[in-house]
Design a protein around this nucleic acid. Structure first.
Lengths: 362, 362
DNA sequence: CGTGCATCTGACAACGTTGTCCAGGTCCTA
DNA sequence: TAGGACCTGGACAACGTTGTCAGATGCACG
């Protein structure tokens, strides 16, 4: 077997090999019955079975019944691989996102699935874990499986590798972040505006020393939200002390250190803007351990935010709507619409619950 | 096109038809280059291209280079449908669960994906929305796509329709709930024991009138947890007043009504055991609006549970571990292990945070 | 009773890939 | 230099399905 793949085409194992190294094309375990078997058993021709299976007209009820019986008896199930080979479309779409376990992506994924289902398609998804190589590997594996379309939440910033795919007719829509170095449909939330509104909200409640904790700077939403933060600060004529700003991975340890650092020192912040749901959760934990109240506004809504005290004020984006919009756009492409690539931006919504309305202590 | 599918084989649309009803097998949009095209361009034979693409030995470096160049130039991507047809394995597994957007299933799904990835396989998933017909439709669609294996969180209670598939060698593992009327591997959490421990915890803190709000009675985990509740009550010699028990859909309205009903009336409960994460969240909301404290223990951990006041005491199950265990079992089947079907039960863990330690008010 | 038409059925090729097998070439050794 | 071993490359069939097209069957009518 291929110990090292010499080509970038796909690193996924699709040969019949098992882990112990045997490769036996014949013993494709269990040898399923084919239409030929059904035809033989029913005493009809191959094509007649095909007609019955696909509900095509031109089969007498009696013949159809015989075929159905044979199908039942043999446990026949049409092989869609062969069908796809013949017909060209797979009725499946791919979704590549960062992490299915993140509460932001679950609803997004589900929304994409629902739209796909409405169009008779299945969803194949993969998590890139924020790794550009893994994103590309996944996307190409999906293309090798000839998905009809792709919904991609990019991890990388160069998607030229998708050019041949798009040229070959694979419908493609990016979500949450724009693609890099190619032109394609993209559906975004208004990260800039949302962050600006959130920070302005803190300013309106008297804060001037406001911290910003965001995701890694190579992530588009992170820099957009930071831009929104800076815009709101500039509009309020506040000079941003760079010790108030922290971008980086969103694991609890890093966020905790960032928060603790900007909450102490010479000019401690009196309010924090958290750049996404994971950051918000960690910041809530940090603030809960402090003696003095610190204001907080987070990007992304989080479950139970209303039941904390104070409730967590957030800039909410509609993950499901994001997914739905992208998927609908995708199927419009598949239905032959050939509009120019479009950038759709969905509004965010400030939900005030208390934490953003705290006044500065000093 | 098929206006009504006459067969249950698959209702998904895999013909090349577009929504406007045209069907054109030729115009399988974009006509991708094939190995034949690559071979022609590189001036070599078909099989030589195949060898290069698959990293097989027996190609001179010079020839390989020419082939690689042709692949690059044409944007060739191997068609895995054809490959699957030839080789038998698809290197993909299916996951059918209730709802990807549920925070319990996200991590589970991700864990399955990680194991699949380690085995070089992709994950196709579908949400059954707790509808047995939809579950079957999804499973059969996955089988038609010839997934190598299936991880199923059952919605229905009769899985005999899977018999031909399993006989044909489709590896199958059930998770979270056992299959109905067939024998297969299943990975469960200890719902009975977990619920019993949780309720015993409430009893130990002096409660005798304890409510139980759970999922619909056709769901295995719901009745197991109810059984655990009854066992703990029996061990404490408490007669259960049936007005304390409520099973049904877990939408907020129904749960809210159930909670309010058992919290009022002639013998109001002083504590509630919530049957899953969705129920817990709603009950927390209801209790937050009450003047007097009511004790609560929930099945499933929920995010931020520690930051509420009081913190929510839960019986935690490890969703990721559930998924991981199931997927590993699946790939053991695929690697040829032919053990008898097994039932694996993972332990739960009581996490005390305050809400379960409240003493009854009366 | 033969012709024409409508309806139903089946033989065959093709989709793109991989496994088998053989041809032709190179290189080494006797 | 002849013979063999070895290496590289290509022709061909097969995987299971569907589209095309022609053949078979049945029936009505002249």
């Amino acid at each position: 077997m291929a110990e090292t793949a010499r080509t970038p085409v796909s690193r996924l194992r699709t040969d019949g090999s098992t882990s112990d190294g045997t490769a036996d094309p014949k013993s494709r375990y269990g040898n399923r019955p084919t239409m030929k078997d059904v035809a033989a058993r029913a005493g009809v021709g191959l094509k007649t079975v095909s007609r019955v299976v696909n509900g095509e007209p031109g089969v007498t009820p009696d013949t159809e019944r015989r075929v159905q019986e044979a199908i039942e008896a043999l446990g026949f199930r049409r092989n869609d691989s062969a069908r796809v080979l013949r017909k060209g479309r797979t009725a499946s779409i791919g979704l590549v996102l960062e992490d299915l376990a993140d509460p932001f992506y679950g609803p997004l994924s589900r929304a994409v699935e629902e739209v796909a289902r409405a169009h008779g398609a299945l969803l194949i998804n993969g998590s890139s874990a924020e790794d550009p190589d893994r994103e590309q590997e996944l996307v190409l594996a999906l293309c090798a499986r000839r998905v009809d379309g792709l919904v991609v939440i990019p991890a990388g910033d160069d998607h030229r590798y998708l050019e041949p795919e798009i040229a070959a007719g694979v419908a493609t829509v990016f979500v949450d972040r724009p693609p890099g170095r190619i032109d394609a449909d993209v559906v975004l939330s208004d990260s800039f505006g949302g962050a600006r509104d959130g920070v302005a909200h803190l300013v309106a409640h008297g804060h001037r020393r406001i911290g910003f904790i965001g995701d890694q700077p190579r992530i588009h939403t992170a820099i957009e939200r930071l831009r929104g933060y800076r815009a709101a600060m500039a509009e309020a004529d506040i000079d941003v002390d760079e010790s108030w700003v922290s971008l980086g991975p969103t694991d609890p340890d890093r966020v905790r250190r960032a928060a603790e650092s900007m909450l102490s020192g010479p000019s401690p912040v009196t309010a924090v803007f958290a750049g996404n749901n994971r950051v918000t959760v960690t910041v809530v934990r940090v603030l809960a351990g402090l003696p003095r109240p610190v204001a907080l506004v987070g990007f992304d809504d989080i479950e139970l935010a209303d039941l904390l005290s104070p409730g967590v004020t957030v800039v909410a984006q509609d993950a499901a709507q994001l997914g739905r919009t992208a998927a609908e756009r995708l199927f419009r492409q598949l239905d032959g619409a050939s509009d120019a690539p479009e950038r759709i931006e969905l509004p965010t919504r400030l939900i005030t619950r208390g934490s953003g309305e705290l006044r500065p202590a000093d």
